[in-house]
Amino acid sequence: MSNEEKKFLEVKGLKKSFGSGDTRQDVLKGLDFTVAKGEFCVLLGPSGSGKSTLLNILGGIDSADEGEIRISGDKLADMDEKSLTRYRRKHLGYVFQMYNLIPNLNVKENIETGAYLSDNPLDIDELLKILGLFEHRYKLPNQLSGGQQQRVSIGRAIVKNPDILLCDEPTGALDYKTSKEILQLIEEVNQKYGNTIIMVTHNEAIKLMADHVIKFRDGMIRHDIINTEKVTAAELEW
């Protein structure tokens, strides 16, 4: 891996606060870390530790007060709104805790909303098979289970084959079994398509399947660990 690939995502001195005066709350208090290309990185921490805020800043839908983020050498802060939209369109995939599917589009069409954004999207039918949704491709979201809906949302995010897949508590609303299935899917996607995955979670168990674990507390990085003994998602227990 080249040095450039090792520093695919580079965060330096990142700070963010909300409110002002007495109500000012420092959410991120100066973060420094790097993520390598194709790495499965988990941002771990309790609620309110600032991990979702970090994810939103990395996704270009929120901005930092101080510090800089570089992706493949491009500085995020230099981008105007249009460039940020283009950046998200070309390089990012988003998966949220709530699936946020379009209710009156069927499974395939929901995935097409992602495919449309790419000039070179993945083959949708093949992806549907990988997601285990091929049989359900003509169903509407309200005809699916929560796990299936989250699969659709992952499909929508990865169909454009993004460089980075940002996942914000993707298993937060799911039961143990479904969560594991989703984690297996993300793992499979990571392995098959080689996207860099940054996943926010408060589930300690998930860190075991990551290449890189960044532990948060009170807006600061407590631990930045490269996991050399990672396990498969199937082996996870909590």
Binding site: A115, I124, G194
Partner: peptide
């Protein structure tokens, strides 16, 4: 990761247009 094994599909028409009729 080798991306050559990934098969690409065609970029679909804007699915939101389909949604207009559904709306």
């Amino acid at each position: 990761m080798d991306k050559s094994s990934i098969s690409s599909g065609k970029r679909p028409r804007n699915p939101l247009l389909k949604r207009v009729w559904k709306d």
